[in-house]
Computed example of a mutant assay.
Amino acid sequence: MPIADNIILVGPMGVGKSTIGRILASLSSREFKDTDHVIEARTGANIPWIFDVEGEEGFRTRESSVLKELVEQPQLVIATGGGIVTQSINRSLLQQQNCVVYLTASLEDLIKRTCRDKKRPLLQVGNPEQRIKELMSTRDPLYREVCSLVVSTESKSPKQVAEKIIQLSQQL
C-alpha cells in the first residue's frame, strides 16, 4: 500500500464511493468510514433532513469537522460526499499525506444512477440532469486538484475498481 496514511475517495454522487470504499477497506485491511454516515450517526438525522433544517452551509460545516477528525486517524479508507471539495479547508485536509482517488463516470451513467434518488438533496430540483451537469462542471476541476489518482468506474464492478486502486496506489 502507499505511504499515505489514508485512502480517500472523492467524486460525484452516484459514482460508487461508499460501495467501492467498503470493498477497498476489506482488500487493504483498513477500517472504512463514510463521512455522510458519520454525520448521520452523530446527529441522529439523515442528510436530507440536515439540508432542510440547516441548509447546505450547515451541512458543509459538519462535513468539514468530520473530515478533519477522520484524516487524523491512520489507515482508513474514507468515502466522502460529492461536495466535500467545494470547501477550501477540505481540499487542504484531503491533500495532507493521503492517497486521494477521484472516481469518475460518464455524465450519462451518473444521471442514470441518481436522477430518481430522493435521498440526494441537491437533485430535488425540476431538472436533475441539468443539475448534475452543473455540479460536474464546477466540481471536476476541484476533484482533479486534490487527487493522487483518477480511476474510472465505467464498465467495471466495484471489486474491479477497488483492485485497480490498490494496484495504482502501490505505484505512487
Rank of each mutant, 00 (worst) to 15 (best):
I39L: 07
A41T: 09
R60E: 05
Q160M: 12
D52N: 13
I39Q: 10
G58V: 11
I39V: 12
C147V: 07
D140H: 08
L110V: 04
R113N: 10
I7Y: 07
K164V: 04
R113V: 06
R91Y: 01
S92E: 14
I8Q: 05
C99N: 12
S18L: 02
G21Q: 06
T86F: 09
K159N: 10
S18P: 02
R60G: 07
N6W: 07
V100P: 05
K68H: 11
I166Q: 06
L123A: 11
L76F: 09
E31K: 13
T43K: 11
Q73G: 00
R116L: 12
R62D: 07
S65R: 14
I89P: 00
S137L: 13
T114G: 10
R131L: 03
L142Y: 11
S137Y: 13
C99R: 02
P128A: 05
Q96P: 00
C99D: 08
D140L: 01
P48S: 01
Y143N: 09
V71P: 04
L135Y: 04
D34V: 09
S152I: 07
G126S: 15
L70R: 04
Q75F: 09
K133Y: 04
A41Y: 01
L107V: 10
S18C: 03
S137D: 14
L103I: 00
I47S: 00
Q171W: 00
S65E: 15
T35I: 11
R30L: 05
L94Y: 04
R113M: 08
P128Q: 04
V85P: 09
F51W: 08
C147T: 13
P121A: 11
K118D: 15
R62T: 02
D109T: 15
L94M: 04
Q170H: 03
V151K: 05
C99V: 09
V38E: 14
I7E: 06
L76T: 05
I78Y: 04
L9N: 08
I166A: 00
R42I: 00
V125N: 09
I20C: 00
R120V: 08
V77S: 02
N6H: 02
S106R: 08
V85I: 14
S92C: 01
L103P: 01
Q75M: 09
P48A: 01
V66Y: 05
I165S: 07
E57L: 09
F32C: 04
P74F: 02
R131K: 15
G83Y: 05
E129F: 01
T138A: 10
F32Y: 15
D34M: 06
R144M: 12
V53D: 05
N46G: 03
I7D: 06
R116G: 13
R120N: 10
K156P: 00
L24N: 01
A25G: 09
